[in-house]
């Protein structure tokens, strides 16, 4: 049936996932090392929920604090890469289905991607 193209699509999807997770883990580990070196001796306190500060909640804020080589900022950047990995996988699948001229699944995938972007771009505040 759609054997060949499905196989190559799957191989590419697998590659995206592996690369995304590896990159995220590396960035998180670097950020973690900086964070522990600077703050490791302080007392841990997560018993009461306070919420994260603005610069660790939005993509722009995270990018700024990561560029300033803040340990916590770098960790959040790695986590952002991790969250973006399945999203990139979905976006890439649109291309795959379009190459197979499968209009139904291009539409399904565009819809899934729009739900993901709605959530990532702050739609949950509504």
């Amino acid at each position: 049936m759609r054997g060949w193209s499905d196989r190559s699509l799957q191989a590419a999807v697998g590659g995206i996932l592996r690369f995304g997770v590896a990159a995220a883990a590396l960035i998180v580990a670097c950020g973690g090392a900086i964070y522990l070196a600077r703050h490791g001796a302080q007392t841990a306190a997560l018993g009461r929920f306070q919420g994260e500060p603005e610069e660790l909640r939005t993509a722009a804020g995270i990018l700024r604090s990561a560029l300033a080589l803040s340990g916590r900022g770098l960790i959040q950047l790695g986590l952002l890469v991790l969250i973006a990995t399945p999203v990139a996988r979905v976006a890439f699948s649109i291309l795959g289905f379009a190459l197979e001229r499968d209009r139904l699944y291009v539409a399904v995938t565009v819809l899934v991607l729009s739900f993901l972007l709605f959530s990532l771009l702050g739609g949950g505040r509504l």
Binding site: E52, L80, P86, G124
Partner: peptide, 17 residues
């Protein structure tokens, strides 16, 4: 999980430490 992670991040549920 990615669909709710964006909302968690925005709400400040994801503590880097």
């Amino acid at each position: 999980a990615a669909a709710s992670a964006g909302i968690y991040l925005d709400r400040g549920y994801i503590d880097p430490g």
